[in-house]
Design a protein around this nucleic acid. Structure first.
Lengths: 241, 241
DNA sequence: CGCGATATTGATATAGATCAACTAATGTGG
DNA sequence: CCACATTAGTTGATCTATATCAATATCGCG
């Protein structure tokens, strides 16, 4: 079931059997991609979209000096570049962060599917707007939070998203990112991430042991992050402190 | 023609006559709203979406101390809260910045329209993804640019967006925002906006006279802003330095 | 074992925040 | 029409969070 994690535990957004089978049929066989490869280059017309089955991917904007800003982190079940279906080409790069497994759908097939199945279209639309909602939260994070708040916010968000796909109990999870990756997500330097991570650790909010992250004090973490998971549109029960 | 500015000058995204008439018929009579009113409150289930006909609106996230972060600025022709159609409720507030004129569509009508007109659905979808593309650019702006770059970027973006709806020649335009508004968009304080605006003025990049903004040196402005308008998906010709 | 990538720590520099005073413009009620 | 209040913008002085630069430590791995 390649779509098992797609829209998983998103409040009231289940696909019916016909819709799910239609997408499953449209998806290519799973493929593996190595870590740290650019999968979609900005500006290039794309003719298929990618469903992430396993591993992590990211979307990047790059400045003149080559500094990268992560604008989205993608987890299994995310339709990574579905944006490219209405947009036709992307304004940013899509990159693998770990080794990943993906399946793809041709845009021509998506056009047929969306011609025939309007409710499915709205669910696909919804999934891209979930990305937009996360974008907005990232804008808030960068515009209004200090370094500790940004890191805590990033970790709280990731914890709940992984929980929704049963990759976490909401507190403990694997996050195979470097501090540089996290810095690129949070608009900080890797040096400062290292320092602030330690203060979060010594404050008893998080435990970080390599890629293994544990939320030790969720209420306190949510407080410094000013975290309110409403924007993730999760099932009730996954989104209470 | 209430939809005259909707998707105006967006490369290859015109509505056909049937689609345009369908939306026109679905739109309410224009209404006026006073400046600085919250039009949609976060979390409240909304049953209609708003097309902005004239004036400026914004979308805000608010932190614990009441500091606001603008996450989107909306101009005439924008379907301000179309996101709420698939999402059902918003994770942020929608506010009028000036006196505005709006027309609304019931979500129930949008459901019928999108059941019947798949291409129209994809165009509506596209328009929300344009917002998402702008969100990403704002993440980049906040994460990777300094204050001068952020202000220049904000002004360059606004210049081109206003140009697309014939409210500017791409260089000169009215922007009835306070420095506090701009600060809330760019993750800065109003004091710092004041100072950096002056440096942009003395550097000969912009002239700002109350709400009247002129881009004096567009190549230089684009350079400090690291501005690349690809993400606005404008007609060719509107997007060349 | 040794090498490249990652993380940590220290010293210093700086962009932007904060606090406060002042000015200019706009509006309001008597 | 004036006195006064309100809002927006400007300028200055100081403070602080984060960047930058540089050295060292640690880890995974061929």
């Amino acid at each position: 079931m390649k779509t098992e994690n797609f829209l998983r535990r998103r409040r009231g957004r289940q696909l019916d059997e016909v819709e799910r089978l239609a997408i499953e049929a449209a998806l290519s066989e799973p493929r593996r991609l190595a870590a740290r490869q650019t999968h979609v280059h900005r500006g290039v017309t794309v003719r298929e979209s990618t469903l992430l089955l396993d591993g992590l991917m990211g979307r990047y904007m790059i400045d003149r000096e080559g500094n990268r800003q992560l604008v989205a982190l993608h987890l299994p079940g995310d339709f990574v570049d579905l944006h490219a279906f209405p947009l036709q080409h992307l304004d940013h790069d899509v990159v693998t962060l770990t080794e990943v497994s993906i399946a793809t759908v041709e845009h021509s097939v998506l056009t047929s599917l969306t011609d025939a199945l309007p409710h499915l279209t709205r669910m696909l639309w919804f999934s891209t707007l979930l990305d937009a909602a996360m974008h907005r939260e990232w804008i808030f994070r960068l515009g209004r939070l200090d370094a500790a708040g940004r890191l805590a916010h990033f970790l709280c968000e990731t914890a709940l998203r992984l929980n929704a796909i049963d990759r976490s109990d909401g507190l403990r999870f694997e996050l195979p990112l470097t501090q540089r990756d996290i810095a690129e997500a949070c608009g900080l330097t890797n040096v400062h991430v290292s320092r602030v991570m330690r203060t979060l650790r010594t404050a008893g909010l998080f435990e970080v042991d390599g890629p293994r992250v544990t939320v030790l004090d969720r209420p306190a973490a949510w407080r410094v992050a000013q975290f309110n998971p409403q924007y993730l549109y999760l099932d009730d029960g996954d989104a209470t402190p």
